[in-house]
């Protein structure tokens, strides 16, 4: 029973099947909202899926064997790690997770940006290196408030995601969730923090030299990041204690999509900031929210 349940969780919901479908759908929602707010009609809903299939069918350009291997392995590991992060989200009521799963989740989510930095440098391209440098600085900028907010939530629970949202008092949760929401556009490379993947400014940033299937894997990893991060936000912001599974699933998907819509509207209505402005924004306003949440949590107020 337990093995069957875990298998379903990994392969169907919230794992493989749901993560792929939701990832492509969320990318489409973002592109569609962007187009509608610019007065365009925008792409049809199957667009991200066909983009992915088409990229898989392209013949990659010959590279030195080691470089080719590294440039395939990095995005592949990124896909697997992000998929793992989605699969361990405790959505269903029978799954209460395990003590410490929040640490596993955060490390799996952080593997993606780390590999993207390595991938940018591994491509030996000027633009790839530039994008990787920017991504590395961005990671230092947004992870400080993000991790502080998670620590504030986790202080009085035993580091398990399903307890995180319920044990912290509401004012700590409010401040911490605001800090986490602030970090999401930077983690997803959206405006106003689309600095590392700045289209047309540094070509395609980290992925400039990636072609065909290798690029498809990066696109897939990015789609899965959408599902993992919005899903984490949904679980932490609307905890359902004792609710039936169907409600848990519906609320999880609904809140995830609401966050996608919010982030897309913000992205479509803002312009790109500079790197120094972004760092200042996160270390001042982001950290202010997160540190006050941590202070309240430590003081036990």
């Amino acid at each position: 029973m337990s093995t069957l349940f875990t298998t379903i969780q990994l392969l169907v919901f919230p794992g493989l099947l749901y993560a792929f479908m939701a990832g492509f759908f969320m990318e489409w929602v973002q592109r569609k909202i962007n187009a509608r707010l610019q007065g365009r009609i925008g792409p049809p809903f199957y667009q991200p899926f066909f983009d992915f299939v088409k990229l898989l069918g392209k013949k990659p350009i010959e590279r030195p064997p080691l470089q080719g291997f590294i440039m395939t392995a990095l995005p592949a590991v990124s896909v697997v790690a992000t998929l793992g992060a989605v699969a361990i989200l405790p959505v269903l009521s029978a799954d209460i997770g395990f003590p410490g799963d929040v640490i596993l989740l955060v490390s799996l989510i952080e593997i993606g940006p780390l590999l993207a930095v390595l991938g940018g440098f591994a491509s030996r391209s000027l633009w790839g290196g530039l994008g990787a440098t920017r991504e590395a600085v961005m990671t230092a900028a947004y992870n400080l408030p993000f991790l502080t907010a998670l620590i504030a939530l986790a202080w009085n629970s035993d580091l398990s995601i399903s307890l995180l949202a319920t044990t912290a008092p509401w004012h700590v949760r409010l401040l911490a969730m605001a800090a986490i929401l602030l970090c999401l556009p930077a983690k997803l490379h959206l405006n106003p923090f689309s600095i590392s993947s700045a289209e047309q400014e540094i070509y395609a940033g980290m992925t400039t030299e990636y072609d065909g299937p290798r690029l498809a894997l990066w696109e897939l990893a990015h789609a899965l990041e959408w599902v993992a991060l919005t899903g984490l936000f949904a679980l932490l912001s609307v905890p359902l204690v004792g609710a039936a599974d169907i409600w848990r699933v519906l609320v999880f998907i609904g809140v995830s999509l609401a966050v996608v819509v919010l982030l897309s509207v913000v992205a479509a209505s803002t312009a790109r900031l500079k790197l120094a402005q972004t760092a200042r924004w996160f270390w001042l306003w982001g950290l202010l929210l997160a540190a006050s949440a941590l202070g309240l949590s430590l003081a036990g107020i």
Partner: peptide
Amino acid sequence: HEGSPRHAD
């Protein structure tokens, strides 16, 4: 519209 020829068809 892609900035990098590696991505283009």
